[in-house]
Design a protein around this nucleic acid. Structure first.
Lengths: 182, 182
DNA sequence: CTCCGATGTTGGATTGCGTCCAAGAATACA
DNA sequence: TGTATTCTTGGACGCAATCCAACATCGGAG
Protein backbone atom coordinates (compact mmCIF):
# COMPACT_ATOMS: atom_id res chain seq x y z
CA UNK A 1 0.00 0.00 0.00
CA UNK A 2 3.00 2.27 0.47
CA UNK A 3 5.95 2.22 -1.92
CA UNK A 4 4.85 3.71 -5.18
CA UNK A 5 7.27 5.60 -7.39
CA UNK A 6 10.09 3.61 -8.92
CA UNK A 7 11.52 6.02 -11.39
CA UNK A 8 11.18 9.62 -12.43
CA UNK A 9 12.07 12.86 -10.82
CA UNK A 10 11.68 12.83 -7.05
CA UNK A 11 9.17 15.16 -5.49
CA UNK A 12 10.47 18.49 -4.34
CA UNK A 13 8.07 18.75 -1.45
CA UNK A 14 5.26 16.87 0.28
CA UNK A 15 1.73 17.39 1.47
CA UNK A 16 2.97 17.61 5.02
CA UNK A 17 5.51 20.34 4.30
CA UNK A 18 2.97 22.37 2.39
CA UNK A 19 0.37 21.91 5.10
CA UNK A 20 2.82 23.05 7.72
CA UNK A 21 3.77 26.14 5.76
CA UNK A 22 0.11 26.89 5.21
CA UNK A 23 -0.71 26.60 8.89
CA UNK A 24 2.03 29.00 9.86
CA UNK A 25 0.83 31.55 7.37
CA UNK A 26 -2.80 31.14 8.35
CA UNK A 27 -1.84 31.92 11.93
CA UNK A 28 0.26 34.91 10.92
CA UNK A 29 -1.97 36.51 8.29
CA UNK A 30 -5.25 34.67 8.26
CA UNK A 31 -6.64 32.34 5.65
CA UNK A 32 -8.00 34.85 3.18
CA UNK A 33 -4.88 36.99 3.22
CA UNK A 34 -2.75 33.96 2.47
CA UNK A 35 -2.47 33.14 -1.22
CA UNK A 36 -1.38 29.88 -2.71
CA UNK A 37 1.77 31.65 -3.82
CA UNK A 38 2.51 32.57 -0.22
CA UNK A 39 2.28 28.94 0.80
CA UNK A 40 4.45 27.58 -1.97
CA UNK A 41 7.00 30.35 -1.50
CA UNK A 42 7.45 29.41 2.13
CA UNK A 43 7.57 25.74 1.23
CA UNK A 44 10.22 26.40 -1.40
CA UNK A 45 8.36 25.31 -4.50
CA UNK A 46 6.54 27.08 -7.29
CA UNK A 47 2.89 27.93 -7.28
CA UNK A 48 2.20 25.45 -10.04
CA UNK A 49 3.45 22.63 -7.89
CA UNK A 50 0.83 23.26 -5.25
CA UNK A 51 -1.80 21.73 -7.46
CA UNK A 52 0.29 18.62 -7.89
CA UNK A 53 -0.26 17.98 -4.20
CA UNK A 54 -3.73 19.38 -3.62
CA UNK A 55 -6.62 20.07 -5.89
CA UNK A 56 -7.67 23.21 -4.07
CA UNK A 57 -6.35 25.67 -1.55
CA UNK A 58 -8.78 24.49 1.10
CA UNK A 59 -7.70 20.86 0.75
CA UNK A 60 -4.37 21.64 2.31
CA UNK A 61 -5.84 21.03 5.76
CA UNK A 62 -7.74 17.87 4.96
CA UNK A 63 -5.08 15.60 3.56
CA UNK A 64 -5.03 13.23 6.54
CA UNK A 65 -8.74 13.03 7.02
CA UNK A 66 -9.40 12.56 3.33
CA UNK A 67 -7.05 9.61 3.19
CA UNK A 68 -8.84 7.93 6.07
CA UNK A 69 -12.20 8.81 4.63
CA UNK A 70 -11.38 7.38 1.24
CA UNK A 71 -10.24 4.18 2.86
CA UNK A 72 -13.54 3.97 4.71
CA UNK A 73 -15.45 4.57 1.49
CA UNK A 74 -13.51 1.77 -0.15
CA UNK A 75 -14.52 -0.60 2.61
CA UNK A 76 -18.12 0.53 2.45
CA UNK A 77 -18.16 -0.35 -1.21
CA UNK A 78 -16.91 -3.78 -0.28
CA UNK A 79 -19.97 -4.10 1.92
CA UNK A 80 -18.12 -4.17 5.22
CA UNK A 81 -20.13 -3.38 8.34
CA UNK A 82 -20.90 0.32 8.33
CA UNK A 83 -20.01 1.33 11.86
CA UNK A 84 -16.81 -0.65 11.65
CA UNK A 85 -15.70 1.11 8.50
CA UNK A 86 -16.53 4.50 9.97
CA UNK A 87 -14.87 3.84 13.29
CA UNK A 88 -11.71 2.93 11.41
CA UNK A 89 -11.48 6.54 10.28
CA UNK A 90 -10.48 7.37 13.81
CA UNK A 91 -7.62 4.90 13.93
CA UNK A 92 -4.51 6.28 12.39
CA UNK A 93 -5.77 9.84 12.25
CA UNK A 94 -3.01 11.92 13.78
CA UNK A 95 -3.49 15.40 15.23
CA UNK A 96 -2.27 17.18 12.15
CA UNK A 97 -2.93 20.45 10.38
CA UNK A 98 -6.66 19.92 10.53
CA UNK A 99 -6.77 19.60 14.29
CA UNK A 100 -4.65 22.69 14.60
CA UNK A 101 -6.92 24.57 12.25
CA UNK A 102 -10.04 23.56 14.14
CA UNK A 103 -8.78 24.78 17.48
CA UNK A 104 -7.49 28.01 15.99
CA UNK A 105 -10.27 28.52 13.51
CA UNK A 106 -11.16 32.08 14.45
CA UNK A 107 -7.56 33.17 14.91
CA UNK A 108 -6.91 31.95 11.39
CA UNK A 109 -10.05 33.49 9.97
CA UNK A 110 -10.97 30.01 8.90
CA UNK A 111 -14.46 29.62 10.28
CA UNK A 112 -16.29 30.06 7.00
CA UNK A 113 -13.93 27.99 4.90
CA UNK A 114 -13.77 25.24 7.49
CA UNK A 115 -17.55 25.03 7.61
CA UNK A 116 -17.73 24.68 3.87
CA UNK A 117 -15.11 21.98 3.70
CA UNK A 118 -16.56 20.09 6.61
CA UNK A 119 -19.98 20.17 5.06
CA UNK A 120 -18.70 18.79 1.79
CA UNK A 121 -16.84 15.94 3.45
CA UNK A 122 -19.71 15.05 5.70
CA UNK A 123 -22.02 14.90 2.73
CA UNK A 124 -19.62 12.77 0.76
CA UNK A 125 -19.64 10.27 3.57
CA UNK A 126 -23.40 10.46 3.88
CA UNK A 127 -23.82 9.62 0.23
CA UNK A 128 -21.61 6.56 0.44
CA UNK A 129 -23.18 5.34 3.65
CA UNK A 130 -26.65 5.78 2.23
CA UNK A 131 -25.71 3.89 -0.91
CA UNK A 132 -24.40 1.08 1.25
CA UNK A 133 -27.62 1.03 3.24
CA UNK A 134 -29.74 0.95 0.13
CA UNK A 135 -27.65 -1.96 -1.11
CA UNK A 136 -28.51 -3.59 2.19
CA UNK A 137 -32.21 -3.22 1.53
CA UNK A 138 -33.08 0.09 3.19
CA UNK A 139 -35.53 2.55 1.69
CA UNK A 140 -33.68 5.40 -0.03
CA UNK A 141 -35.21 8.21 1.98
CA UNK A 142 -34.71 6.53 5.34
CA UNK A 143 -31.21 5.60 4.31
CA UNK A 144 -30.34 9.23 3.69
CA UNK A 145 -31.55 10.19 7.13
CA UNK A 146 -29.70 7.45 8.97
CA UNK A 147 -26.62 8.02 6.87
CA UNK A 148 -26.87 11.70 7.69
CA UNK A 149 -26.70 10.84 11.36
CA UNK A 150 -23.68 8.59 10.94
CA UNK A 151 -21.80 11.05 8.77
CA UNK A 152 -22.53 13.83 11.22
CA UNK A 153 -21.24 11.60 13.99
CA UNK A 154 -17.90 11.19 12.26
CA UNK A 155 -17.30 14.87 11.69
CA UNK A 156 -18.65 15.90 15.07
CA UNK A 157 -16.30 13.41 16.71
CA UNK A 158 -13.33 14.84 14.87
CA UNK A 159 -14.29 18.31 16.00
CA UNK A 160 -14.84 17.27 19.59
CA UNK A 161 -11.52 15.48 19.52
CA UNK A 162 -9.68 18.51 18.14
CA UNK A 163 -11.40 20.88 20.55
CA UNK A 164 -10.52 18.82 23.60
CA UNK A 165 -8.12 21.17 25.34
CA UNK A 166 -7.36 18.66 28.04
CA UNK A 167 -10.54 16.68 28.14
CA UNK A 168 -8.49 13.74 27.00
CA UNK A 169 -10.37 10.99 25.25
CA UNK A 170 -9.01 9.34 22.15
CA UNK A 171 -10.65 9.99 18.81
CA UNK A 172 -11.63 6.34 18.64
CA UNK A 173 -13.54 6.57 21.89
CA UNK A 174 -15.35 9.74 20.93
CA UNK A 175 -16.11 8.33 17.52
CA UNK A 176 -17.59 5.08 18.77
CA UNK A 177 -19.65 7.00 21.28
CA UNK A 178 -20.98 9.29 18.59
CA UNK A 179 -21.71 6.41 16.24
CA UNK A 180 -23.51 4.55 19.00
CA UNK A 181 -26.05 7.34 19.20
CA UNK A 182 -26.81 7.14 15.52
CA UNK B 1 -43.30 40.60 5.40
CA UNK B 2 -43.58 42.02 1.90
CA UNK B 3 -43.67 45.75 1.11
CA UNK B 4 -40.25 47.24 1.63
CA UNK B 5 -38.89 49.99 -0.58
CA UNK B 6 -40.59 53.35 -0.48
CA UNK B 7 -38.23 55.50 -2.48
CA UNK B 8 -35.14 55.22 -4.60
CA UNK B 9 -34.47 53.79 -8.01
CA UNK B 10 -36.58 50.72 -8.77
CA UNK B 11 -34.84 47.43 -9.37
CA UNK B 12 -34.09 46.60 -12.96
CA UNK B 13 -34.48 42.86 -12.48
CA UNK B 14 -35.34 40.24 -9.88
CA UNK B 15 -34.03 37.02 -8.45
CA UNK B 16 -36.67 35.12 -10.39
CA UNK B 17 -35.74 36.63 -13.73
CA UNK B 18 -32.07 35.97 -13.17
CA UNK B 19 -32.72 32.43 -12.03
CA UNK B 20 -34.81 31.76 -15.10
CA UNK B 21 -32.13 33.10 -17.42
CA UNK B 22 -29.53 31.05 -15.60
CA UNK B 23 -31.56 27.85 -15.94
CA UNK B 24 -31.98 28.32 -19.65
CA UNK B 25 -28.28 28.81 -20.12
CA UNK B 26 -27.37 25.89 -17.92
CA UNK B 27 -29.52 23.68 -20.09
CA UNK B 28 -28.07 25.06 -23.30
CA UNK B 29 -24.38 25.23 -22.41
CA UNK B 30 -23.93 23.62 -19.03
CA UNK B 31 -23.12 25.20 -15.72
CA UNK B 32 -19.38 25.62 -16.09
CA UNK B 33 -19.59 27.06 -19.56
CA UNK B 34 -22.07 29.65 -18.39
CA UNK B 35 -20.49 32.74 -16.89
CA UNK B 36 -22.15 35.29 -14.69
CA UNK B 37 -21.90 37.69 -17.60
CA UNK B 38 -23.86 35.28 -19.75
CA UNK B 39 -26.65 35.21 -17.20
CA UNK B 40 -26.87 38.95 -16.75
CA UNK B 41 -26.66 39.57 -20.47
CA UNK B 42 -29.66 37.38 -21.08
CA UNK B 43 -31.49 38.96 -18.17
CA UNK B 44 -30.76 42.41 -19.50
CA UNK B 45 -28.68 43.81 -16.69
CA UNK B 46 -24.99 44.32 -16.10
CA UNK B 47 -22.67 41.83 -14.51
CA UNK B 48 -22.24 44.02 -11.46
CA UNK B 49 -25.92 43.87 -10.75
CA UNK B 50 -25.84 40.11 -10.38
CA UNK B 51 -24.18 40.44 -7.02
CA UNK B 52 -26.88 42.78 -5.85
CA UNK B 53 -29.25 39.83 -6.09
CA UNK B 54 -27.02 36.89 -5.22
CA UNK B 55 -23.79 36.60 -3.34
CA UNK B 56 -22.42 33.86 -5.57
CA UNK B 57 -23.08 32.24 -8.90
CA UNK B 58 -24.26 29.03 -7.29
CA UNK B 59 -26.80 30.80 -5.13
CA UNK B 60 -28.88 31.56 -8.17
CA UNK B 61 -30.62 28.21 -7.79
CA UNK B 62 -31.19 28.33 -4.06
CA UNK B 63 -33.07 31.55 -3.60
CA UNK B 64 -36.38 29.92 -2.71
CA UNK B 65 -34.98 27.25 -0.46
CA UNK B 66 -32.73 29.69 1.35
CA UNK B 67 -35.65 31.95 2.16
CA UNK B 68 -37.57 29.06 3.65
CA UNK B 69 -34.51 27.81 5.46
CA UNK B 70 -33.76 31.17 7.01
CA UNK B 71 -37.30 31.40 8.22
CA UNK B 72 -36.94 28.00 9.85
CA UNK B 73 -33.69 29.05 11.47
CA UNK B 74 -35.40 32.13 12.85
CA UNK B 75 -38.07 29.97 14.43
CA UNK B 76 -35.52 27.57 15.82
CA UNK B 77 -33.84 30.48 17.54
CA UNK B 78 -37.18 31.34 19.06
CA UNK B 79 -37.23 27.85 20.51
CA UNK B 80 -40.16 26.58 18.52
CA UNK B 81 -40.57 22.81 18.26
CA UNK B 82 -37.86 21.50 15.98
CA UNK B 83 -39.80 19.20 13.68
CA UNK B 84 -42.46 21.84 13.28
CA UNK B 85 -39.99 24.47 12.20
CA UNK B 86 -38.35 22.07 9.75
CA UNK B 87 -41.59 20.81 8.31
CA UNK B 88 -42.55 24.41 7.61
CA UNK B 89 -39.72 24.58 5.10
CA UNK B 90 -41.82 22.39 2.87
CA UNK B 91 -44.83 24.67 2.94
CA UNK B 92 -44.53 27.47 0.47
CA UNK B 93 -41.61 25.97 -1.37
CA UNK B 94 -42.57 26.13 -5.00
CA UNK B 95 -41.05 23.93 -7.73
CA UNK B 96 -38.64 26.60 -8.92
CA UNK B 97 -35.19 26.74 -10.44
CA UNK B 98 -33.79 24.40 -7.83
CA UNK B 99 -36.23 21.61 -8.59
CA UNK B 100 -35.51 22.02 -12.28
CA UNK B 101 -31.79 21.90 -11.62
CA UNK B 102 -32.07 18.76 -9.53
CA UNK B 103 -33.93 16.81 -12.14
CA UNK B 104 -31.64 17.99 -14.91
CA UNK B 105 -28.45 17.94 -12.90
CA UNK B 106 -26.38 15.88 -15.29
CA UNK B 107 -27.71 17.55 -18.41
CA UNK B 108 -26.68 20.85 -16.88
CA UNK B 109 -23.30 19.59 -15.73
CA UNK B 110 -24.40 20.58 -12.28
CA UNK B 111 -23.75 17.45 -10.27
CA UNK B 112 -20.60 18.63 -8.54
CA UNK B 113 -21.78 22.14 -7.85
CA UNK B 114 -25.14 20.95 -6.64
CA UNK B 115 -23.51 18.54 -4.22
CA UNK B 116 -21.38 21.28 -2.78
CA UNK B 117 -24.26 23.67 -2.31
CA UNK B 118 -26.50 21.02 -0.88
CA UNK B 119 -23.84 19.99 1.61
CA UNK B 120 -23.35 23.54 2.78
CA UNK B 121 -27.03 24.13 3.28
CA UNK B 122 -27.58 20.86 5.05
CA UNK B 123 -24.76 21.62 7.42
CA UNK B 124 -26.06 25.12 8.12
CA UNK B 125 -29.33 23.57 9.17
CA UNK B 126 -27.58 20.92 11.23
CA UNK B 127 -25.68 23.54 13.16
CA UNK B 128 -28.81 25.48 14.02
CA UNK B 129 -30.76 22.39 14.96
CA UNK B 130 -27.94 21.16 17.15
CA UNK B 131 -27.68 24.51 18.88
CA UNK B 132 -31.40 24.37 19.54
CA UNK B 133 -31.07 20.87 20.97
CA UNK B 134 -28.21 21.86 23.22
CA UNK B 135 -30.30 24.77 24.46
CA UNK B 136 -32.91 22.15 25.24
CA UNK B 137 -30.47 20.23 27.37
CA UNK B 138 -28.98 17.69 24.98
CA UNK B 139 -25.33 16.70 25.06
CA UNK B 140 -23.40 18.49 22.31
CA UNK B 141 -22.10 15.39 20.58
CA UNK B 142 -25.44 13.61 20.57
CA UNK B 143 -27.10 16.79 19.44
CA UNK B 144 -24.85 16.97 16.38
CA UNK B 145 -25.76 13.43 15.44
CA UNK B 146 -29.49 13.86 15.81
CA UNK B 147 -29.35 17.23 14.13
CA UNK B 148 -27.40 15.63 11.32
CA UNK B 149 -30.25 13.21 10.79
CA UNK B 150 -32.88 15.94 10.76
CA UNK B 151 -30.94 18.18 8.42
CA UNK B 152 -30.31 15.26 6.11
CA UNK B 153 -34.02 14.52 6.18
CA UNK B 154 -34.85 18.02 4.96
CA UNK B 155 -32.49 17.98 2.02
CA UNK B 156 -33.23 14.38 1.11
CA UNK B 157 -36.93 15.21 1.08
CA UNK B 158 -36.36 18.12 -1.26
CA UNK B 159 -34.38 15.88 -3.58
CA UNK B 160 -36.96 13.12 -3.49
CA UNK B 161 -39.65 15.67 -4.16
CA UNK B 162 -37.81 17.16 -7.13
CA UNK B 163 -36.94 13.76 -8.53
CA UNK B 164 -40.49 12.51 -8.41
CA UNK B 165 -41.19 12.20 -12.09
CA UNK B 166 -44.79 11.34 -11.52
CA UNK B 167 -44.64 9.65 -8.16
CA UNK B 168 -46.76 12.46 -6.86
CA UNK B 169 -46.52 13.15 -3.17
CA UNK B 170 -46.33 16.69 -1.86
CA UNK B 171 -43.10 17.97 -0.40
CA UNK B 172 -44.81 18.31 2.96
CA UNK B 173 -45.71 14.64 3.00
CA UNK B 174 -42.24 13.48 2.03
CA UNK B 175 -40.70 15.86 4.51
CA UNK B 176 -42.78 14.74 7.46
CA UNK B 177 -42.09 11.15 6.55
CA UNK B 178 -38.37 11.78 6.44
CA UNK B 179 -38.41 13.72 9.69
CA UNK B 180 -40.35 10.96 11.37
CA UNK B 181 -37.49 8.57 10.79
CA UNK B 182 -35.00 10.89 12.41
C1' DC C 1 27.93 4.96 -20.11
C1' DT C 2 24.42 6.47 -22.63
C1' DC C 3 19.94 6.70 -24.07
C1' DC C 4 15.05 6.27 -22.85
C1' DG C 5 10.76 6.41 -20.58
C1' DA C 6 8.55 7.95 -16.59
C1' DT C 7 7.63 11.30 -13.20
C1' DG C 8 7.86 16.12 -11.37
C1' DT C 9 8.81 20.95 -11.67
C1' DT C 10 8.45 25.55 -13.46
C1' DG C 11 6.94 29.79 -15.55
C1' DG C 12 3.58 31.89 -18.22
C1' DA C 13 -0.80 32.55 -20.06
C1' DT C 14 -5.73 32.24 -19.55
C1' DT C 15 -10.39 32.30 -17.65
C1' DG C 16 -13.76 33.60 -14.57
C1' DC C 17 -15.42 34.51 -9.79
C1' DG C 18 -16.02 37.79 -6.32
C1' DT C 19 -14.97 42.52 -4.44
C1' DC C 20 -14.75 47.34 -4.48
C1' DC C 21 -15.77 51.97 -5.86
C1' DA C 22 -17.09 56.24 -7.96
C1' DA C 23 -20.37 58.10 -11.04
C1' DG C 24 -24.80 58.39 -12.60
C1' DA C 25 -29.88 57.36 -13.06
C1' DA C 26 -34.53 56.93 -11.25
C1' DT C 27 -37.69 57.23 -7.59
C1' DA C 28 -40.53 59.60 -3.35
C1' DC C 29 -41.15 63.43 -0.85
C1' DA C 30 -40.80 68.21 0.91
C1' DT D 1 -37.15 72.36 -7.77
C1' DG D 2 -34.17 70.48 -4.59
C1' DT D 3 -32.82 66.48 -1.67
C1' DA D 4 -32.31 62.02 0.23
C1' DT D 5 -32.63 57.34 -0.99
C1' DT D 6 -32.06 53.31 -3.68
C1' DC D 7 -30.32 51.02 -7.37
C1' DT D 8 -27.36 50.40 -11.79
C1' DT D 9 -23.24 50.46 -14.32
C1' DG D 10 -18.56 50.15 -15.91
C1' DG D 11 -14.04 49.54 -14.70
C1' DA D 12 -10.44 47.91 -12.11
C1' DC D 13 -8.39 44.56 -9.13
C1' DG D 14 -6.68 40.11 -6.68
C1' DC D 15 -6.76 35.48 -6.73
C1' DA D 16 -8.06 30.53 -7.44
C1' DA D 17 -7.74 27.08 -10.69
C1' DT D 18 -6.57 25.17 -15.30
C1' DC D 19 -3.63 24.29 -19.09
C1' DC D 20 0.66 23.72 -21.49
C1' DA D 21 5.26 23.41 -23.26
C1' DA D 22 9.93 23.22 -21.76
C1' DC D 23 12.98 21.39 -18.70
C1' DA D 24 14.98 18.58 -14.74
C1' DT D 25 15.86 14.24 -12.48
C1' DC D 26 15.32 9.70 -11.49
C1' DG D 27 15.59 4.24 -12.68
C1' DG D 28 16.62 0.85 -15.81
C1' DA D 29 17.87 -1.43 -20.35
C1' DG D 30 20.97 -1.92 -24.01
Amino acid sequence: MASESRSGRPRASSREVLAEAACELFLEQGYDATSVSDITRRAGVSRSSFFNYFSAKGDVLWSGFDAQSEEAVRRLRDDVAIDGALAAIGEGLAPDALALAITNAEAMGLAAELDRDRAVRQFRLQREIAARMVRGGAAPLIAQVRAGASAAAVLAAVWAWADRTASGGSLTDILTEALASA
